[in-house]
Design a protein around this nucleic acid. Structure first.
Lengths: 236, 236
DNA sequence: GTGGATTACTGGTCAGACCAGCAGTCCTAA
DNA sequence: TTAGGACTGCTGGTCTGACCAGTAATCCAC
């Protein structure tokens, strides 16, 4: 064919098979044919279904993996991610699945939250505090009814950051939370006891409500220390 | 760079080979061994350089392609993209142009860096410190020759974060730097005296080199206090 | 029961092969 | 001499088939 690009014509965009697969899977998720947590067919099966080589399927899955759309666990399979896909610093990506990464993440959280919590105790408005209290109570009730989502636990910490009134702190906290979720999802780590977490949250919030910055920081430290101990222990 | 040094690429070792390659290439770009527009070695060549199959190389390149780090052109080769992608939290976008935003940003930086700097003083390796020293000296010389770029000043702070050995802290610092640049770009704010900044940097680095965490933190505080005063004053 | 070995399956990796497009080279014909 | 086309070697794109190392469910012996 002589359809070269005279100015009228666009350069022909040769599609890459893997791109097509990426789009198809994303569409299936968007259309909710694939729900979070669902297991995708194996790579071999998928390849045959699309009449394509396994290599092309793998390239597609690798991309979706990086995008956070999908979680790939060797020996088990590939699953639709439960956390909303959020861009993660690409340079950190390869670390997400290492246990030490959660400890690094925890160190960063500690640095930040140790200062956020006292600020929240000083700056939060009455209304904000009431709203958080309601949210926490709702979560406690939800847990009693057997319902529990990890993202909600992290939301508490992000909300704490919001109380400071500094949107940058909120943004950074959200950033760390996203990495936390991704990392834990990739490692397949079980969440720590939700009851314990809620108790800590209650303590922190109480101190904040009473405008006791130091007490709030102490409670926060206990919470993070407990998490660290949990990570270090399970890692063995 | 017509001749590509293969010695730049290290043999690969642990889990998922493609992740390692992604990181190596990103590192090479970050270290400016690979410049925007440069052509990467062919897939086959790259594979051999890291003792890995071509498939793994392809998976890595596919990811880098999606991330916008690299441009792949069939028949020609793979090239480093000219514009590195830098996402900013959309919810903050509208705030970028407000003066108070720089103050919020500064508060976050202070919280983080006040803890980063002492950590750096404790953990940094000799080599890292020497490298930073060289970089700082180069910048001093550049300034004397009338050359000055704001991004370089922020790079100092990011490098400080790297000294902690905690990639999360580095990432957050980079995240804040990104917003800082954007915000200042939008507000059209003139940078503070580059000479003054370099002097502060020199003081901080010296304390870190001498393994004096407290002194390093004090120097860092002076630096940030100075910046805040500068922002508040000019805002009037 | 209970626990250990077995086995089928999954992703991770490798090797080698072929295709189509791009770009220089070289040879030929005007 | 020079314009044109064939040639050649490179590049990424794709496919096939094979083996490895984990997971998880099963089954069998104790």
């Amino acid at each position: 064919m002589a359809t070269q690009e005279h100015s009228l014509f666009q350069p022909v965009r040769r599609s890459r098979v893997s791109e097509d697969i990426v789009r198809q899977i994303q569409d299936l998720i968007a259309a909710e044919h694939l729900q979070p947590g669902d297991r995708l067919p194996g790579e071999r099966e998928l390849a045959e279904a699309v009449s394509v080589s396994r290599q092309s399927v793998r390239e597609a899955l690798r991309v979706l993996d990086y995008l956070g759309v999908v979680i790939v666990r060797p020996g088990e399979g590939t699953f639709v991610a439960t956390t909303p896909p959020s861009p993660v610093d690409p340079s950190l990506y390869s670390l997400l699945s290492e246990r030490s990464f959660l400890l690094d993440l925890l160190e960063a959280r500690r640095i930040l939250e140790e200062r956020i919590v006292p600020l929240a105790a000083r700056r939060a408005t009455r209304d904000d505090l009431d709203a958080m209290d309601d949210a926490l109570t709702a979560r406690e009730r939800g847990l009693a009814a057997g319902k529990h989502d990890v993202a909600g636990d992290l939301a508490f910490h992000t909300q704490l950051a919001e109380l400071t009134g500094n949107p940058v702190l909120t943004s950074v906290m959200r950033y760390l939370s996203e990495m936390w979720l991704r990392s834990r999802e990739k490692t397949g780590r079980r969440p720590t006891s939700p009851h314990k977490a809620l108790q800590f949250h209650r303590q922190i919030l109480q101190a904040v409500r009473r405008r006791q910055p130091s007490a709030a920081r102490r409670a926060l430290r206990r919470h993070l220390d407990d998490m660290r101990a949990d990570i270090e222990e399970r890692g063995r």
